[in-house]
Amino acid sequence: MEELQKDIYKIEKVELLPVIMEKKNDYWRLLQICCAFADGKYEVTYSFASGYEIANYRLVVEKDEEVPSISRVYKAAIFYENEMKELFGLNVEHMKVDLQNKLYRIDAEVPFMKEEDK
């Protein structure tokens, strides 16, 4: 784990589930999950909060790489993960509820990706 800036930590894929479990056991709530696509890679940020404290964990994955789902640990993650999958085409594995790209019912495939990145 490496601190990128205040409250943002970069983690590896193997660290993700241990970190999530630790947060869950400490009664942190899931604040949000955000996906961004920059420099040919996905940046997935998991934010947790407890009271006024906040911690963001950044996972950087290649374009076709799979991301483990956390929706079995945090039920609230279902919407965030489906959103990332539908808007960015991020490959989230084993989601608890897979809405099959029907969360927002958009015609276009992966609308938030730029043409050249698709």
Binding site: L87, L99, Y104, I106
Partner: peptide, 15 residues
């Protein structure tokens, strides 16, 4: 619940 009736994609307008 299911949503998706008023999605406008405002977030992607930043580009």
């Amino acid at each position: 619940p299911s949503i998706g009736y008023v999605h406008r994609g405002l977030e992607s307008l930043v580009t």
